[in-house]
Design a protein around this nucleic acid. Structure first.
Length: 483
DNA sequence: TTTTGAGTTGTTCGA
DNA sequence: GTCGAACAACTCAAA
């Protein structure tokens, strides 16, 4: 007589290494049934967007392969998690259900109810932490409040040394006597078909646990030592590119933290430890976003600073559309938006530039940008996305003062000094030199002609005048201040 | 409780 | 061209 199986519910932890729920199940010795549930109902408007679904398909295929090599099958089911999990548990006669925690408000509500319901039925139900260095409720100020400013949050995290070492992957998973039926991954149609816009994604990314570890290794070898200096340069390949892997939990922050720490300790970086610390700080920014989302669950919808509820946005579909499609007439902005559309990812410096442009130059509500990013980013993450949009809009935690309006020409010159990034994503400007590429409207007519650029024809005229737009943004801000 | 120092990411203006 | 100040006050976190 075999022991009753344990159901391991995979969610945003699509990996076998450092997976505490899986490890706990293995420790029990009971047969293991791994399941992924495609649940488009529970999250409401925050169900994965188009690019994220593409990623999810690849990542599930990779996870299924890894499980297969360990002697297990990934069961795919579709529906509301809260219904599917108890039903499947009953179907297989499970005695225990385990999962790693998610922190979206709807996920917390669902998991809380589900855990109680499972226990009510006499099952063991346990949840674990796979996604964060620290639980959002475990880092608090001395007065017991959540942090609202990044720097003290970072110091509090840095000074704690209680980050668990990553757990190895189980070699072999005990199989049940029979496998329950499941959906075929292809039938979920997570990948785009008509049209198939995923070519740039396929060329850029390798979703799955192995791809995540390769990317981390390549980053640590080649780029960590210059991270602080180069990370703001979108024309260089200077960042880790781990965000989508982290979002889906193909690699966990403990693994990244620990691998980075080993590089620091090994002396490889002698004299450049601060380059690596800057990278760890970025990892802690992710923690800070989750901290904010947990303590302020309305973060994705409404401004943290309530005065901004009164902000006089000038909603305009044409303006939003020009921004979305990379046809604003500001080369650095258009390059960023086209990179996003093409590969499902945008360099963080560009995220700030294009967000500032949408919110401050075009006076479109930050939620409109948040929604576009949600649909187009392979790393779309509720906590990071909403916290970052609020930060740029000036209504978030420790937000930039509203009068900090990015100048797209200066940002372009400073962070894409040779214009290579613009040339890559806005090929119609390829013929312009670094002197003119960030400001084509100011170039002499002969220069434009030589470069084959006809403004308003081959490339748009600037859709607004930045100087005037900045003044309007500042006067709109005056209204919020008065409120 | 009160006080104090500080706060990711910038731009413009005038000397 | 370079440099420092101004841009606003306000809230946060710790002492």
């Amino acid at each position: 007589m075999t022991a009753a199986p344990t159901l391991v519910w995979f969610r945003q932890d699509l990996r076998l290494t450092d997976n505490p729920a899986l490890a706990a199940a293995v420790e029990d010795g009971a047969p293991i049934v791994p399941v992924y549930v495609l649940d488009d109902e529970t999250p409401g408007r925050w169900a994965p967007g188009g690019a994220a679904r593409w990623w999810l398909h690849q990542s599930l295929a990779a996870l299924a392969g890894g499980l297969d090599r360990a002697g297990a099958r990934l069961v795919l089911r579709r529906g509301r998690g809260e219904e599917v999990i108890p039903a499947l548990a009953e179907e297989i006669g499970a005695a225990r259900v385990v999962w790693n925690r998610c922190y979206e408000p709807w996920a917390i509500d669902r998991d809380t109810r589900l855990k109680a319901a499972l226990k009510e039925r006499g099952l063991r139900a346990d949840s674990f932490n796979a996604s964060l260095l620290f639980e959002p409720w475990a880092v608090l100020t001395r007065s017991g409040d959540p942090y609202k400013v990044y720097t003290p949050f970072w110091k509090a995290c840095r000074d704690r040394a209680d980050i668990d070492a990553p757990k190895p992957a189980p070699q072999r998973l005990p199989a049940p006597e029979a496998w329950p039926a499941g959906d075929a991954l292809d039938d979920w149609e997570l990948r785009p078909k008509t049209p198939d816009w995923a070519n740039g994604l396929r060329e850029t990314w390798r979703p799955g646990e192995a791809g995540a570890h390769d990317r981390l290794g390549a980053f640590l070898d080649a780029r960590l030592g210059r991270y602080k200096d180069d990370r703001n340069r979108p024309d260089l390949d200077a960042t880790s590119g781990l965000s989508p892997h982290l979002h889906w939990g193909e690699i966990g922050p403990r693994q990244v933290w620990s691998a980075t720490g080993h590089r620091i300790d090994s002396g490889d970086l002698a004299g450049r430890e601060n380059q690596a610390e800057t990278f760890l700080k970025e990892l802690v920014w992710r923690e800070f976003s989750y901290h904010l989302l947990y303590h302020f669950p309305h973060l994705p919808d409404s401004p943290l600073n309530e005065r901004f509820s009164e902000f006089p946005w000038a909603e305009n579909r044409q303006r939003l559309r020009a921004w979305q499609t990379g046809r604003t007439g500001y080369p650095i902005v258009d390059a960023g938006m086209r990179q996003l559309w093409h590969i499902g990812w945008m360099h963080n410096r560009l995220r700030m530039i294009v967000a500032s442009f949408l919110v401050k130059d075009l006076l479109q509500p930050w939620q409109a940008g948040e929604a576009w990013f949600w649909d187009t980013l392979v790393d779309a993450d509720l906590a990071n996305n909403s916290a970052s949009w609020q930060w740029v809009a000036g209504c978030g935690a420790g937000a930039a003062p509203y009068f900090r309006v990015f100048n797209p020409v200066l940002q372009g010159r400073k962070f894409d000094p040779d214009g290579d990034y613009v040339r890559r994503w806005v090929p119609e400007l390829r013929g312009l030199s670094a002197d003119h590429i960030h400001e084509p409207w100011a170039a002499p007519a002969a220069t434009l002609k030589d470069a084959g650029v006809r403004l308003g024809d081959t490339y748009p005229e600037p859709m607004i005048d930045h100087k005037a737009a900045r003044r309007e943004a500042l006067s709109a801000f005056e209204q919020v201040k008065a409120a």
